[in-house]
């Protein structure tokens, strides 16, 4: 009998609750949630992990992750994580934020938490727009990219340049590990999982912030099917946000690898 417990290869980790995810079909949030929870499960640190949920689509992350979580005011997750980590230095603390949360309203908290070198992990999901509120332009929207507030494409002369916050925080002395990933193919998901493991392992070293950006799709906001959105992401997002490690063990690595 093939379908029996002794032949089991892969199943949803018990650290994800059985609640159906509130995300749109094909959204990368679900995969990122599950991979973080798999890492927590593998390390056996469910009781010692505290997550900080953001404001945005993933505001309900505490409903889906079966660990202790706190929800922060918009953009203030790194500040809240700082407080929790300083009270409980032996706990594993991570924040989970979107681009509107981390790179727009929370820029000050992000940059100062990274500059102080708080011993936390930050997971930053970048889909280039404000997905939850209806696809408005975000700081990370690409030049020429259409959103509901830039229907003719982002005009750099009028609206300014997109913000590469990941490269920005990699320059700061407080960051220990900075990397950019995606979760649209099985290979990229497995790479992201290794990086997430590293982010949690780094917290034992007490060396600074581990910052992982996940370039993700927003097929509802981009008005595409999930598969087309992933293709569009490969063609347009990855040249601007190249995947790969930017800073490892506190040292800048020469050049981020090209998109795959």
């Amino acid at each position: 009998m093939l379908v029996s417990p002794e032949n089991l290869v892969y199943t949803k980790t018990p650290l994800m609750t059985d609640k159906p995810l509130s995300y749109c079909p094909g959204c990368g949030h679900g995969t990122v949630h599950r991979m973080i929870m798999e890492v927590v499960d593998e390390m056996g640190i469910q009781a010692d992990t505290i997550g900080i949920a953001p404001v945005g689509c993933s505001v309900l992350a505490y409903e889906f992750m079966n660990i202790d979580m706190q929800q922060a005011a918009h953009g203030r997750a790194p500040a809240l994580a700082t407080g929790i980590k300083r009270c409980w230095p032996d706990k594993y603390v991570f924040t989970y934020q979107g681009d509107g949360d981390l790179a727009a309203i929370g820029t000050a908290e992000t940059i100062h938490a990274c500059n102080r070198g708080e011993n936390i992990a930050i997971f930053f999901v970048n889909n280039g727009i404000y997905g939850m509120t209806g696809g408005q332009m975000a700081p990370t929207t690409l030049p020429g990219m259409r959103s509901s507030t830039t229907p003719y494409g982002r005009d750099v002369a009028l609206m300014g340049n997109p913000l590469k916050i990941t490269e920005l925080v990699a320059m700061l002395p407080g960051t220990f590990y900075v990397s950019r990933h995606s979760v649209h193919t099985p290979l990229n998901v497995r790479k992201f999982k290794r990086a997430a493991r590293m982010a949690f392992e780094n917290q034992k070293l007490n060396k600074g912030v581990s910052f992982i950006e996940i370039v993700s799709n927003c097929n509802s906001g981009w008005k595409m099917s999930p598969v087309d959105a992933n293709k569009w992401m490969e063609d347009n997002m990855f040249p601007f946000y190249p995947l790969g490690d930017i800073k490892v063990n506190g040292e800048m690595v020469s050049k981020p690898t090209k998109a795959e």
């Binding site: 199943t11 995300y23 079909p25 679900g30 995969t31 649209h184």
Partner: peptide, 12 residues
């Protein structure tokens, strides 16, 4: 199963 956003697939 790895790439499924909703984690609905179980593999044997």
């Amino acid at each position: 199963a790895v790439v499924c956003p909703d984690g609905v697939i179980t593999v044997y």
